[in-house]
């Protein structure tokens, strides 16, 4: 045993302030990590504000001496996205045209199916739910070729209808998971009370269940908006050359460019494409997290 007393005899009142090295290190770590995560964004923005001369001579870190929006303008109006050189404008419009029905339809379908499964418990419902959930894990490549054939046989290939159908098909599992889990957390008594009050299938959905679904609808819409906007594979195959979404056109700008590479224009185009999901993300942070967390919870 050491002779040092375990407790200082004169200790009294608040603990003396001392420099907390641990806290300092903690914040340094966090700031370093944040810098690493933000670095590509910074490079993207600075590059897009430079002219090609500055890109070639300066460092990719550097803030441009004369920031200009020239690159943004040509990314939007004149960059070559394949055979035409009209910038990303068209792709943006295409993405919007794809987005609206590809969000509305799966969300509505997921809500109604989830409601039917959770409250009406029809025969075979569990089988349907389980089957669709497995679909969540299967690589898309297995479905794609037959789906091209099936959709083209009903005139839904190479047009907006086709891409919307594909988004609906592949969003069904996650939408159903979201809504079913949410509805399963609502009290069953509520549904029973509505049955006794004489509500039918659609009345109970419209008057009782839907008004309570606002939070999960927000989550589902955010998830689907970012998912559809960021899609590349389906847009490439199913949308048809006149309706290519922004992501596909962006990839064309960069990876099919011939001759001198205009990195500043490429980065401007990249930011423009990322803008919609980023805005959604920044304004909905908490809901966004709920969406990905809900996707992670098994049914």
């Amino acid at each position: 045993m050491s002779s040092r007393p375990l407790f200082p005899a004169h200790a009294e009142g608040p603990r003396p302030a001392r420099l907390n090295l641990g806290r300092l290190a903690l914040y340094l770590c966090l700031i370093a990590a944040a810098a690493a995560f933000l670095f590509p964004l910074w490079v993207m923005v600075t590059t897009s504000l430079k002219d090609m001369e500055a890109v070639r001579s300066g460092s990719i870190f550097g803030w441009p001496a004369q920031p200009s929006l020239e690159a943004w303008k040509s990314a939007w109006t004149s960059a070559c996205t394949g055979l035409t050189c009209e910038g990303l404008r068209g792709g943006f419009v295409n993405s919007l045209l794809i987005l609206v029905p590809s969000v509305a339809l799966p969300v509505a379908l997921g809500a109604v199916t989830g409601y039917a499964l959770s409250f009406w418990r029809p025969r075979g419902g569990k089988l349907l739910f389980g089957g669709l959930l497995i679909g969540l894990f299967i690589p898309y490549q297995v479905f794609i070729y037959p789906l091209v054939r099936i959709l083209s046989s009903v005139g839904l290939y190479g047009n907006i209808g086709g891409i919307v159908a594909v988004h609906t098909i592949f969003a069904m599992p996650i939408m159903l998971l979201l809504f079913r889990n949410y509805y399963a957390s609502l009290p069953m008594d509520l549904f029973k009370a509505a049955r006794i009050d004489g509500g039918g299938f659609w009345t109970i959905f419209r008057r009782v269940v839907l008004p309570m679904s606002a939070p999960i609808i927000v989550v589902a819409v955010i998830l689907q908006v970012t998912g559809v906007w960021n899609d590349f594979l389906f847009g490439l195959i199913f949308a048809g050359s006149d309706n290519l979404p922004m992501t596909v056109q962006l990839n064309n700008i960069v990876n099919s460019a011939r001759g001198a590479q205009e990195y500043n224009v490429q980065m401007a185009a990249t930011i423009l494409t990322a803008l919609v999901p980023l805005i959604v993300y920044f304004f909905s942070g908490r809901w966004f997290v709920r969406g990905i967390a809900a996707g992670a919870v098994k049914g």
Binding site: P187, D189, A193, I196, D197, G198, P211
Partner: peptide, 21 residues
């Protein structure tokens, strides 16, 4: 028969009041 057609009223443990009404 459907619940609504049985001439019954029911009160639940969790109250089961419609929250948005």
């Amino acid at each position: 028969a459907e619940p609504k057609d049985r001439g019954i009223g029911m009160v639940f443990q969790s109250y089961a009041l419609y929250p948005r009404m």
